[in-house]
Each structure stands twice: as C-alpha cells, then as structure tokens.
C-alpha cells in the first residue's frame, strides 16, 4: 500500500475547501441535523468550517495519527460539539453524522483531482476513512460520557429530592425514606438528617422505611451507619415502618437492626413523645369546643 502523507490530504482539503464545505453542509442538512431546530444554519456552518480548518492543520502538521498531540485542537472542538449536542438532546447517530458525512465530499474532491494516480487515490481514500472513523468513534464516546454525566446528575437530584427531613414536634424529626438505599444515597440521607438534627437541636430522629422495597444486609448496614452517626452527635434514632414481609426476609437473611424499631411511624412518634416527657391524651367529647372559649370560672376570677 502506498504511504499517504497527511500533508497531501491537508493540501487537498485546502485546495477544495470551496466545494467540500457546501457539499458537506448539504449532506448534514439532508441527514436532518437542522430539522429539530436545535441549532441554526449559521451555527452549523461555523462549526463545520471550524472543524475542517482544525482537521487540515492537524493533517499538515502531524500526519494521520489521531493520537498525535497535533490533533488535540480538533478533538477539543469535537468534545465541545459532542457534549453540547448530547445536552441538546441529539441522538448518537445525529451527532456522529457530523463526522461521517464529511467522507463523501472528501472522496468527491479526491476523484475530481487530476494530479493523483489511481493507486494514490485508493490509498488516500483508505487513510481518510480510517481517520474519520476514529474521529467519529471519539465523538460517540464523548457523547456517551456526556449522557452518563447527565444521568449521574439527575440521580443525585432525585436522591436529594426524595429524602426530606420533616419536623414532627419540637426536637423530634422524621425521615420518610422512599426507594432503594445505595451507598451514594445513604451519604446524602445521612448528611441531610445530621445537619437537620444540628439545625433543629433535635433529640430524636425517626427513620421511616415504609417506602423501602427491600432491606438486605447492605441496606441494613447503611441504616445502622446513619443511626450510629446520629448517636455520636447526641441524638437517638428509631426505625419505623418495617413491613411484615420485610421483617420476615430480614430474619431469614439474618439481618439484625440493633436499634429501637416500631411497626408504624405513629407508634414511633408516640414513643418519642413519651421519651421527651410528653403524653398524648384523648379529651372528653365537647371539651375541645369548650377549650376554645374562655371558661366561665376563669372569667369570674
């Protein structure tokens, strides 16, 4: 196979820029890049032109090895482009089209070129294909990474939203947990609860797990860590809302929760009230209405 110098492709691009660019833009448009209205034609044009120049410079300086540092500017540009398209909601294939649709205009330019021998053209086509394939894969990889970042951010947001700490009474907090407890979420839950304990000067925190689908050894460990940390700060924890099936599974798995637990949040709250020196009593019928008005005896006194 004839060796192809990067500079040959670079000069080809330079000489034919006036035809390559419009053809490339046309192909991108045909592929539907502009259809969704997520980017404007002007934007697409400047992105394409910009990339073509960076590619040409890299080819001229460093040949056709994408791992060569001279490709950094071109890759950095693809990085930004891929990232922003991932965030704008482009599909992976729409994003990769940016690179892959450049092949045709480049090959057309090659075929039009009278100065090259057929062998040289074949070799150049091969080299260019490899080069663009690699850049296309790079674009996809960045795209994938950006989407993953979005997912991670959303997971964090969900975790924060789904762990509200509510105040039940002076000094008594409740943390109704919903969903599965993994390590990352435990961290958020823990920090949230402990900070609220400090802010509210709470003595007792009730962790309600009615909304937790399963309690395995790991979940139990996470719960116990939270309880232990709260105790170190001087607050007592209780766990409530262990459903019958979960209690059975826990016994079956040998999971132990060495902490005060109550069947329902109401039971735990009652205990918390007693522990902080309060009782709840039912008053006689009609008394609550009487309580609203000043009593006759008091008025007289």
């Amino acid at each position: 196979m004839t060796d192809v110098a990067g500079s040959d492709i670079a000069s080809l691009v330079s000489r034919n820029e006036q035809t390559i660019l419009p053809e490339w833009l046309e192909l991108q448009k045909k592929a539907g890049t502009l259809n969704t209205g997520r980017i404007s034609e002007g934007e697409l044009q400047s992105q394409s032109q910009n990339f073509l120049h960076l590619l040409r410079d890299a080819l001229a300086k460093g040949g056709n090895d994408v791992s060569n540092p001279v490709y950094e500017p071109a890759k950095a540009m693809l990085n930004d482009l891929s990232r922003s398209r991932a965030l704008q909601g482009f599909t992976p294939s729409e994003t990769a089209t940016f690179i892959f649709s450049l092949k045709e205009p480049l090959f057309n330019a090659l075929n039009r070129d009278q100065t090259l021998s057929p062998e040289k053209i074949a070799a150049t086509v091969w080299t260019t294909t490899l080069l663009l394939d690699e850049l296309g894969l790079f674009t996809l990889e960045i795209f994938q990474k950006s989407r993953e970042e979005v997912i991670i951010r959303q997971q964090r947001e969900i975790a924060e939203l789904s762990t509200p700490v509510v105040k039940l009474w002076d000094g008594i907090l409740a943390l109704p947990l919903i969903g599965t407890l993994d390590s990352q979420r435990t961290q958020v839950v823990m920090e949230n609860l402990l900070q609220t304990i400090v802010d509210d000067e709470a003595e007792i925190a009730i962790i309600d797990i009615t909304g937790v689908p399963t309690v395995d050894t790991l979940t139990a460990q996470h719960l116990l860590k939270t309880v232990a940390a709260a105790r170190l700060m001087g607050a007592d924890c209780m766990i409530s809302g262990i459903r019958p099936q979960i209690a059975q599974t826990m016994v079956h798995l040998g999971v132990e929760l060495n902490v005060i637990s109550k069947a329902t949040l109401a039971d735990a709250f009652g205990l918390a009230l007693r522990q902080t020196g309060r009782t709840v009593t039912r008053i006689k019928k009609g008394e609550w209405q009487a309580g609203l008005k000043p009593k006759a005896g008091e008025q007289g006194a």
Binding site: L194, I197, E203, K225, A228, L232, M233, G234
Partner: peptide, 22 residues
C-alpha cells in the same frame, strides 16, 4: 459535627462506652 460523625462511623469507631449530647 455531622461530618466528623459520618467519618468516625466509616472509620469503624462507634465510641460505644461514651454518652453523647447535642
């Protein structure tokens, strides 16, 4: 402090013999 409590638990220290208060 909360961050200290979380770290101690992770470290494996429970200070079981120590009473605590806010």
């Amino acid at each position: 402090r909360p961050a200290v409590a979380i770290t101690l638990v992770e470290l494996g220290l429970s200070l079981a013999g120590v009473k605590t208060a806010l």
